[in-house]
Simulated assay, not measured.
Amino acid sequence: MKRSIALSAVLAVAGFTAAPAAFAGADNSHASSGTYVALGDSLAAGYQPGLGDDKDGGYVGGVYANLRDKYRGAKLVNLACSGETSTGMIADGRCTYPDGQSQLEAAVDLIRSQKGKVRLITLNIGANDVQRCVKGGAVDMPCVQAGLTAVARNLPQITTALRAAGGAQTQIVVLNYYNPFLAAWAAGNPQLAQLSTMLQGQLNVSISYAAKAADAKVADVATAFRSNDWSLQPNGLPTNVAMICGYTWMCSKGDIHANDMGYALMADTVTPLVHGPKRPAAPSVS
Rank of each mutant, 00 (worst) to 15 (best):
R3C: 04
R3G: 09
I5P: 10
L7C: 09
A9D: 12
A9P: 00
A9K: 14
V10E: 06
L11H: 02
A14S: 12
A18S: 13
A18N: 11
A22P: 01
S29P: 11
S32W: 13
S32V: 11
S33P: 03
A38C: 01
G40F: 04
L43V: 15
L43P: 00
A45K: 06
G46M: 05
Y47P: 01
P49L: 03
G52K: 07
D53F: 02
D53Q: 10
D54Y: 03
K55G: 04
G62L: 04
V63T: 13
A65W: 02
R68M: 05
K70G: 10
K70L: 15
Y71Q: 09
K75L: 09
N78Q: 07
A80F: 07
A80G: 03
C81P: 01
C81S: 10
S82I: 00
G83Q: 03
E84I: 08
E84C: 11
T85H: 08
G88K: 01
M89L: 13
I90L: 15
A91M: 13
A91G: 09
G93L: 11
E105H: 13
A106G: 08
A107E: 04
D109G: 14
I111H: 07
K117H: 08
K117F: 04
T122P: 07
L123M: 05
N124K: 04
I125Y: 03
A127F: 05
N128G: 01
N128I: 09
D129T: 12
D129K: 08
Q131T: 15
Q131K: 00
V134K: 03
G136P: 06
V139K: 00
V139A: 01
V139E: 01
V139M: 00
D140N: 13
D140T: 06
D140S: 01
M141G: 00
P142D: 12
C143M: 07
A146N: 10
A146R: 12
G147K: 04
A150Y: 01
N154H: 13
P156W: 06
T159E: 10
A161M: 10
G166N: 10
G166K: 08
G167Q: 15
A168E: 15
T170P: 06
T170S: 14
V173H: 02
L175N: 07
N176P: 02
A183F: 04
W185M: 02
Q191C: 06
Q191R: 13
Q191W: 04
Q191P: 00
S196Y: 11
L199I: 14
Q200P: 00
G201R: 07
N204L: 02
V205R: 11
S206L: 01
K212H: 15
K217V: 05
V218C: 12
D220G: 03
V221W: 03
A222H: 06
A222N: 11
R226M: 12
P234G: 10
P234Q: 12
P234S: 11
L237S: 09
P238I: 08
T239A: 12
C245I: 10
G246P: 04
Y247S: 11
S252H: 08
S252W: 07
G254R: 07
A258G: 13
G262M: 00
G262C: 02
Y263H: 05
T271Y: 01
P272K: 13
L273T: 11
V274A: 14
G276E: 12
K278S: 12
R279K: 15
R279S: 15
